[in-house]
Computed example of a mutant assay.
Amino acid sequence: MSIPPITPFPSGERSSLGRPFLWQSDAPLPERPQAALNVGAHMWIPNQYACDTIALDDDPELLRARIRDWWGITDDVSARKTVGLLLDGMHSATFEVIAPLVAEATNRSPGHDPEVHREFLAARAAARGESPGYWISHYNALYNLRTAKILRNTVSDRHFPTHIRAWDLGRLPFVVRTCLSSGFLEVDECWPMLFAALDSARSYYANWRQFAHGVVIGRAYWSALTDIGKAGDAAQVAGNWVNALLVRSDSPWRRMPLWPEEEPQRRVP
């Protein structure tokens, strides 16, 4: 399988590439816990979370306000539900249905017109008791993202993914860590959640570079759902995050690969 190219975005003093990764302990974590935390590593720089601990030093009240405002999480039930949705593919599950249609439309394949696709999605949603508007709006967001050439050509064409599992799995550690320090989750249930995300990431990706590709596309798609005009900036911000992880010597991704060294790298479609 070809690996999508990752080209560093220009970085200045305010770029994520200039911020240090935080490490709290001189003794490294065992491989599996550290790899599980690394699944969410692209969110450690912007939030200044340490890379090698599940605990957070931030004020619990501040964390509760953050997780409520950003995720709508207010208690243990909503915390567990959100984690479950991320493991199931909160955004990727929809993406995986519409991405092949958008690919055919952008390639101008015979019989694959955007209006035909919208009619199909509306009929599909109605038959399943779902909102046609939901599916059409997601289709439009991805179609606009690809046809507007907001992303690099190498990403929008030959290397465009069929799923964005990295975007969902990569946000799970942030939710788990924040909910733990907010008092919504217990530590003995958090590690199984993190390990589940790690195992899922390993089933979809061979290495961090492929995982990074999913993060960038996922964030651009997520932004396009609300404002296509901001999708390019969203992709660039995510690009800064993952490039820091891919090139910096203090990066958790550089210190530990997605797969243990002794295990073969693989990808399950």
Rank of each mutant, 00 (worst) to 15 (best):
D233C: 03
L198H: 07
D199R: 09
G232M: 05
G218Q: 10
G232K: 11
A212D: 04
S203N: 09
W222N: 07
N207Q: 09
A224P: 04
V215R: 07
A201Y: 13
G229N: 07
Q210I: 06
R202Q: 13
R202V: 04
R209W: 03
Y221R: 06
G218D: 11
Y221I: 11
A234D: 05
R202C: 00
L225N: 03
A235E: 06
Q236N: 08
N207F: 10
L225T: 07
Y205D: 12
A231H: 03
W208A: 06
D227H: 08
R219M: 11
F211Y: 14
A224V: 12
Y221Q: 02
K230V: 02
V216I: 14
Y204P: 01
G229Y: 10
V216A: 14
H213G: 14
R209V: 05
W208F: 15
D227V: 08
F211V: 05
D233S: 09
D199P: 09
Q210K: 13
A235Q: 01
A224D: 07
D233E: 13
N207P: 00
W208I: 14
A220V: 07
S203K: 12
F211E: 08
D199E: 15
A196N: 14
L225F: 01
R219C: 09
H213W: 14
A224R: 00
Y204W: 15
A206L: 03
N207A: 06
A206E: 13
G214M: 15
L198M: 03
V216H: 04
V216K: 01
L225I: 07
Y205Q: 14
W208E: 15
D233L: 12
D227M: 06
V216F: 04
W208T: 12
Y205T: 12
K230T: 10
A197L: 01
A196S: 15
G218H: 11
A235D: 05
G214N: 13
D227E: 14
Q210A: 06
G229F: 09
A212M: 12
S223P: 00
A234H: 03
N207E: 11
A201L: 06
W208G: 10
R202H: 04
A220G: 02
Y221E: 10
T226W: 08
A206P: 07
V216P: 00
A231W: 03
G229R: 10
D199G: 01
I228E: 05
D199T: 01
D199F: 01
F195L: 12
D227A: 14
A220E: 00
L225V: 05
H213F: 11
Y205W: 13
W222G: 01
